[in-house]
C-alpha cells in the first residue's frame, strides 16, 4: 500500500511540476520546477527498482545539466510579457495539434495488444545481481557497438562546442606559469648606480 501511495505522490508531483515548467511566469522558477520533476522521476525509477538509473538521473540531470541551465537562465533578461504575446495567436493551432496527438494515443491505447514477441520481455527478469552490474554486463557485451557510438556522439558535441565558441583574441596576456617561474634575475632586474641629484634617465 505504501508503495502504491508513494507512486501516486511522486507521479502527481512529477506531472504538476512538469506543467509548472511551461506555465510558470518566471523562467528561473521554470527551471526549479524542472529540477523538481527530475527528482520525482528519479524517485519513480527507484520505486521500479532501477536504482542505478535513478542515481544517474540525479547526478547527470540535476547535478550537472540543470545547474548549467539555471546558470544561464539566471543571467538572461527575459521580458515575459513579450514572450507571451504570440501565445494566444498560436493557441488554436497548438490546441488542435495537441488534441490530435492525444486522440491518437487514446486510439493506440484502445487497441492495445502486445505482440507475442513483446510478451516475453514485459516483465524484467528478476535476478540476484544488483542492477548496476546487470546493466554493465549488457552494455559492455551485447550493446558494445551502441555504447561506443554514443561516445562518438558526445565527442562530436564536444568538438562542435569548441569550434563554435573558442576564440583566441590577440593581445591578451595570459599566465604562463612555466615561463614565469623559469624567469631569472638577470632578465628582470637591472641594478643602476645613481648619483645623488641626477636620477636615472632611461
Amino acid at each position: 500500500m505504501i508503495h502504491a501511495l508513494a507512486f501516486y505522490v511522486f507521479a502527481a508531483v512529477t506531472v504538476v511540476s512538469a506543467f509548472m515548467v511551461i506555465s510558470a511566469r518566471n523562467p528561473v522558477h521554470s527551471v526549479l520546477y524542472l529540477i523538481l520533476a527530475f527528482f520525482n522521476s528519479a524517485a519513480l525509477f527507484l520505486l521500479m527498482g532501477a536504482e542505478f538509473i535513478a542515481m544517474i538521473l540525479v547526478i547527470v540531470y540535476v547535478g550537472a545539466v540543470a545547474v548549467l541551465f539555471l546558470f544561464v537562465v539566471m543571467m538572461l533578461d527575459i521580458n515575459i510579457a513579450e514572450l507571451r504575446q504570440g501565445f494566444l495567436k498560436y493557441l488554436p493551432i497548438g490546441a488542435a495539434v495537441g488534441i490530435a496527438l492525444f486522440a491518437e494515443i487514446l486510439l493506440a491505447l484502445g487497441a492495445w495488444s502486445v505482440s507475442p514477441v513483446a510478451a516475453g520481455s514485459l516483465r524484467a527478469k528478476v535476478s540476484d545481481v544488483p542492477n548496476t552490474e546487470a546493466l554493465g554486463r549488457l552494455i559492455y557485451t551485447d550493446y558494445m557497438f551502441l555504447f561506443q557510438a554514443a561516445g562518438m556522439v558526445l565527442l562530436i558535441a564536444m568538438i562542435g562546442a569548441i569550434v563554435l565558441t573558442l576564440r583566441t583574441r590577440p593581445g591578451v596576456r595570459r599566465q604562463k606559469i612555466a615561463a614565469q617561474i623559469g624567469r631569472r634575475r638577470e632578465e628582470a632586474v637591472v641594478l643602476v648606480k645613481t648619483r645623488v641629484g641626477e636620477g636615472v634617465s632611461s
Binding site: L107, A111, V117
Partner: peptide, 26 residues
C-alpha cells in the same frame, strides 16, 4: 512498446506473423 523489440529482423518477424497493432502503425 507495441512490437516488443527494436531489432529490424525481430520487427519484420512480428509483423509477418500478422499481429499489427495500431500503436505500431502510429
Amino acid at each position: 512498446g507495441f512490437a516488443g523489440t527494436t531489432s529490424f529482423p525481430g520487427l519484420a518477424r512480428g509483423f509477418l506473423a500478422g499481429d499489427v497493432a495500431t500503436g505500431a502503425i502510429i
